[in-house]
Design a protein around this nucleic acid. Structure first.
Length: 649
RNA sequence: CGCGGGGUAGAGCAGUUCGGUAGCUCGUCGGGCUCAUAACCCGGAGGUCGAGGGUUCAAGUCCCUCCCCCGCAACCA
């Protein structure tokens, strides 16, 4: 066993079905910042990130790309690693769920769960939607037989499956969460889980699939693959050798101190994961911390909206440190935050260029000008000096406290308070006045020493967030001794020896012409929206015979009236005329159509669809509409020449 | 009454645990300084803290009701 305190931190393992964006970057940078901080403060730190490479979606994406799944994920993984390198992320292990050791371990885990009767084999009888390839529970179904995803009829399918007895552990977990308020952070997430899932009662979880093969095979029943969440969640321990040949790392690092997750996967990490760990006799992670989403403006980032932000162009312009700083500084960790280019550029200019960069520049410039670049020894401190010294000495403990709570934004705020103090100190002491004649030299020596030392401290503290800038600052101060860049070296003020030679370098962060860069960034963003693969999302339908088509009766109908349905934000209720008869039809297009504008228009109705009761109203047919890749729906209209009731065929 | 989060200066946010002068950053206006990246420092203007009611000597903070926004869920034949 180690004497040193250990600290194990994980990011989620990302699903490599496409390029990683700034949201994933946010989580990973946070983990990296934390890991660097803990390393710096003396912890034996282990930092895991990786990729979750199994599952149907990957299988399908690979197929579309004409590659086998392994090749497909290999390529994306290579990109992912490049991104982390670009962002200066130093993980200790990059976990891939296709790693053979991991696969073997998952198989053992699965068998062990079966052996101890936490997993049982049963027949899954469920409503299956062939088009979505998903099972739905009775309560999820639309009016008994419609797929909640695509609305198409589901069919009753029986399938052999393995189930995990979640229900068995639910009371234990409720108790655990109540006894460990720090386990789920922020606390509102614990509430959410308790209220939505735990208290209403857990269903046993279906933990195997037979509908696809890209996964970890169940070794004793090879037509099944292990449910991807078991496969994925356990990476956090298989990476340490759990159920492998050598579990030294597991002994040393497990349980994790912090597992970072996005708010969308809180449920998996705070319900299924703890239960499964517990069932295997493993301790739970100390904390699962759910951070918020990075929104773009106020919109959710999504590929179809074309507003996804990718880091590389930003890093190319401003450097990884600037982006890392922005991500960690702009929003409190845990809440949703906004990403905007303007906010990023504002931060860079005001915090990094004006406050920090300029402070370093003016200090080193004065050292150059007055002392030939040599750091002088201080003389007696006066009140004004002592005030700044006190604040600088108080900084590391305050910083550590905020960091330990993962309040990166607060931690940085503390540092910047002192940056500001330094700038103010220069105004108060007026070194340029002191430099006018020799009588001022003793004070000038003190003032510039205090500044240099304060900046050294700041340089150390920003290291977890901005490793490169930290190094550059120390370089500019002429610090060569590594010992002067450590956490311990900033406990007391004054470790910086005099006599060092300052090296004025380039501006740390050149000021940005915001309006100009903003325009260029928007330009550069244009080609970014991914050519959203429209085809793949809707799997091709099988060829049909003419007879099949003949079964459909479609007619042109005139809209007599149309109004939004009370209590629904999606449904419009139509009264339609088919010439001879009238019908009531509901359609879920309220978000995209103003009912008033539809009256009198000629639409296309599928007439011989079985009537269906929705929200208490019987819908007699379906209006044809077209769906965009982003899910927006638009009615199809017939030409005015066509009479109502006209047959379509 | 599905669950949760939120509504505080022009913008973005903190403060609400445990009531006691409404704060920070950016922007804006005025002043100062010249070491510095047109940067830095000081000061001003700007808020009935979503609405209404209640408790209290005192409410952004506690209680009740309501409105609006955002996720999830549900619903899109």
């Amino acid at each position: 066993m180690q004497d040193r305190k250990t600290f194990y931190i994980t990011t989620p393992i990302y699903y490599p079905s496409g390029k990683l964006h700034i949201g994933n970057t946010y989580t990973t940078v946070a983990a990296d910042t934390m890991a660097r901080f803990k390393k710096m403060t003396g912890y034996d730190t282990y930092f895991l990130t990786g990729t979750d490479e199994h599952g149907q979606k990957i299988e399908r994406r690979a197929q579309e790309a004409g590659k086998d799944p392994q090749t497909f994920v290999d390529e994306i993984v290579a990109d992912t690693k490049k991104l982390w390198q670009l962002m200066d992320v130093e993980y200790d292990v990059f976990m891939r769920t296709t790693d053979p050791d991991h696969v073997k371990a998952i198989q053992r885990i699965f068998r062990r769960m079966l052996d101890q009767d936490d997993i049982y084999r049963s027949v899954y009888e469920g409503q299956y939607c062939a088009s979505c390839e998903a099972f739905w529970t009775a309560t999820q179904l639309v009016d008994g037989h419609g797929c909640p995803d695509c609305g198409k009829p589901t069919e009753l399918v029986q399938e052999e499956s393995y189930f995990f007895r979640m229900s068995k552990y639910q009371d234990w977990l409720i108790q655990y969460i109540e006894d460990h308020p720090e386990f789920i952070q922020p606390p509102s997430r614990a509430n959410e889980m308790l209220q939505n899932f735990l208290r209403p009662g857990l269903q046993d979880l279906c933990v195997s699939r037979t509908t696809f093969s890209w996964g970890v095979p169940v070794d004793f029943d090879p037509k099944h693959v292990v449910y991807v969440w078991i496969d994925a969640l356990f990476n956090y321990v298989t990476a340490l050798g759990y159920m492998g040949d050598d579990d030294t790392l597991l002994q040393k690092y497990w349980p994790a101190q912090v597992q970072l997750v996005g708010k969308d996967i809180v449920r998996f990490h705070t319900i299924y994961w703890p239960i499964m760990l517990h069932s295997l006799g493993l301790p739970l992670p100390r904390q699962v911390f759910a951070h918020g989403w990075l929104l773009f403006g106020n919109d959710k980032m999504s590929k179809s909206k074309g507003n996804v932000v990718y880091p590389p162009p930003i890093v190319a312009r401003y450097g990884a440190d600037a982006l890392r700083y922005y991500l960690m500084r702009e929003m409190p960790f845990g809440a949703d935050g906004n990403y905007t280019n303007r906010a990023l550029l504002n931060r860079i200019n005001s915090d990094l260029a004006n406050d920090l960069g300029n402070l370093v520049r003016r200090t080193t410039a004065m050292l150059d000008k007055y002392f030939g670049g040599v750091i002088p020894a201080p003389n007696a401190y006066e009140a004004v000096d002592q005030a700044l010294i006190d604040k600088t000495e108080a900084l590391p403990p305050a910083f550590e406290e905020e960091m330990d709570a993962l309040q990166f934004s607060q931690a940085l705020q503390e540092v910047w308070r002192v940056v500001s103090e330094c700038n103010r100190y220069i105004d108060l002491t007026q070194p340029w006045v002191l430099g006018r004649d020799e009588s001022g030299t003793p004070r000038l020596q003190t003032v510039l020493y205090v500044l240099a030392e304060a900046i050294r401290v700041i340089g150390v503290l920003i290291y977890p967030v901005m490793p490169t800038t930290s190094r550059r600052i120390h370089q500019q101060l002429g610090i060569e001794d590594e010992a002067l860049t450590t956490w311990d070296s900033i406990n007391t003020f004054g470790a910086l020896p005099s006599g060092g030679k300052v090296q004025q370098g380039e501006a740390l962060f050149p000021r940005i012409d915001i309006e100009k860069d903003l325009a260029e960034l928007e330009q550069g963003d244009q080609p970014e929206p991914e050519p959203e693969p429209t085809v793949p999302e809707t799997p091709a339908k099988p060829e049909i015979a003419f007879d099949d088509f003949e079964k459909l009766s479609m007619k042109v109908a005139r809209v007599i009236s149309c109004e939004a349905m009370a209590g629904s934000d999606k449904l419009l209720q139509f009264r339609l005329s088919l010439g001879q008869e009238e019908r009531t039809v509901l359609s879920g297009i309220a978000k995209y159509h103003d009912p008033a504008t539809l009256v009198g228009r000629k639409v296309i109705l599928l007439c011989n669809l079985a009537p269906r009761k929705i929200r208490g109203v019987v819908s007699e047919g379906m209006l044809l509409s077209a769906e965009n890749p982003d899910g927006s729906l638009y009615l199809l209209f017939a030409d005015d020449q066509v009479q109502e009731g006209a047959e379509i065929g």
